[in-house]
Simulated assay, not measured.
Amino acid sequence: MTSTPNHGSSLRSIPSSQQSGRFLQVRMAKVNDPSWKPTFIVKPDGGCQGDGIYLIKDPGEVRIMASIQNRPAVVQEYISKPLLIDRLKFDMRLYVLLKSLEPLEIYISKDGLSRFCTEQYQEPNHKNLHHVYMHLTNYSLNIHSGNFIHSDSTHTGSKRTVSSVLYRLLAKGMDIKKVWSDIIALVIKTIIALIPELKVYYQVDIPPGKPGPSCFQILGFDILLMKNLKPVLLEVNANPSMKIEHEQELLPGVFENVPSLVDEEVKITVIRDTLRLVDPGRRRSNQNR
Rank of each mutant, 00 (worst) to 15 (best):
Y78N: 15
I79C: 02
I79W: 05
I79F: 00
S80R: 06
S80Q: 04
S80H: 08
K81V: 04
P82Q: 07
P82R: 05
L83T: 04
L84P: 05
L84V: 02
L84Q: 00
D86C: 01
D86L: 02
R87P: 00
L88R: 15
L88P: 03
L88G: 04
K89N: 09
K89L: 14
F90E: 11
D91L: 10
M92L: 10
L94T: 04
Y95S: 00
Y95V: 11
V96R: 01
V96D: 03
V96N: 07
S100E: 15
S100A: 10
L101S: 01
L101I: 00
L101Q: 02
P103M: 12
P103C: 08
L104P: 11
E105K: 14
Y107S: 10
Y107E: 12
Y107V: 05
Y107H: 15
Y107C: 06
Y107W: 11
S109R: 04
S109F: 05
K110Q: 15
K110Y: 13
D111A: 13
D111C: 10
D111N: 15
G112E: 13
G112K: 14
L113D: 02
L113G: 00
S114T: 14
S114R: 12
R115V: 04
R115I: 09
R115E: 08
F116C: 09
F116Y: 14
F116N: 14
C117F: 01
T118Q: 02
E119F: 08
Q120T: 11
Q120N: 13
Y121R: 06
Y121L: 01
Y121A: 02
Q122T: 13
E123T: 03
E123W: 02
E123S: 00
P124Q: 01
P124G: 02
N125W: 08
H126T: 11
K127R: 09
K127M: 13
K127G: 09
L129Q: 08
H130W: 07
H131K: 15
H131R: 15
Y133R: 12
M134G: 02
H135P: 14
L136M: 08
T137M: 02
N138F: 05
S140R: 02
S140M: 04
L141Y: 09
L141E: 00
N142A: 06
N142D: 07
N142F: 06
I143S: 10
H144W: 14
H144C: 12
G146L: 12
G146I: 07
N147H: 10
N147T: 10
N147V: 03
F148D: 04
F148V: 07
